[in-house]
Amino acid sequence: MTPLAIETAGLTRRFGGLVAVRDLHLSVRIGEIFGFLGPNGAGKTTTIRMLCGLLAPSQGRAQVDGVDVGRDPEAVKRRVGYMPQRFSLYGDLTAEENLHFFAGVYRMGSAKRRERVAECLRRVGLWERRATLADHLSGGLKQRLALACAMVHTPAILFLDEPTAGADPPSRQRMWDLLYEAAGEGRTILVTTHYVEEAERCQTVGFMHRGSLIGRGSPEECKAGFAEELLEVDADPIMRAAALLRGAEAVSGVSVYGRLLRVFGRPGAGLVERVPKLLGAAGVAARTVRPVAPSLEDVFMSMTRLAEGGAEER
């Protein structure tokens, strides 16, 4: 059996009456990039905060790098790096001062600290800007500085909460290059994102929905395990077609993508035959109707719908 970097069993967190994370069973292998996908409020941040030792679990167990988070959160903190969703470094300190401070707090000796801080600054491309106050850096650079701070003590596991939120595509690309580089050194990375195309870059994806893990696997496995029929429909007028199909039996969901519709149906529902008939009967012209392979986003939409009982999304 491959050794695990993170393993949770029945991990649960309540805030008063609200269950933010429910009975989470999660395993992340050493050295993999695990992507946490899910809408806001699904419990991704709460899970990460528990795994970093910042939040006590209400129930269940979690082992991070072999240490029980519930029992010894401080030992976990020595082994992991955490990059919160919101920029959390000192805006009135320079990039270099921030790194020096955190390296010091992680108890690195002064010679090693100097060396490591310089290395981190160079690696994330901030060496030239090292004397700039963190507040004066652009969004993308702030995110890279935050990553550098999370990695300054060479942790075995990195927890990154939406490390590319709001960043432009080149910045996101740069961030992912850095993540691959870190993973290449044997670090385990648990990253949350809303961007489905970012999830495609992960080795394993976990879908969270309302505090529960509703599916997991490699992006390929997820797509292969897609349990519904999926059609791409080019119809005119498109919104009328969408409304018609949403009301139809056997159709479990319809998403609009530009000038095309993606129509989901229960397996064996025979959508390819039924959809053109249905649209034709209502006088809507269907130019093309063809079955397509699901994207990760389709998988996620479908899983969310199934988890909700299929009612709401129609």
């Binding site: 970093c52 030792g53 910042l54 401080e74 903190k77 020595r78 992991v80 955490y82 919160p84 919101r86 959390s88 470094l89 955190f102 707090v105 992680y106 108890r107 701070c149």
Partner: peptide, 8 residues
Amino acid sequence: DQLLATPI
């Protein structure tokens, strides 16, 4: 948040 995530 960042500070509490360290072993300080």
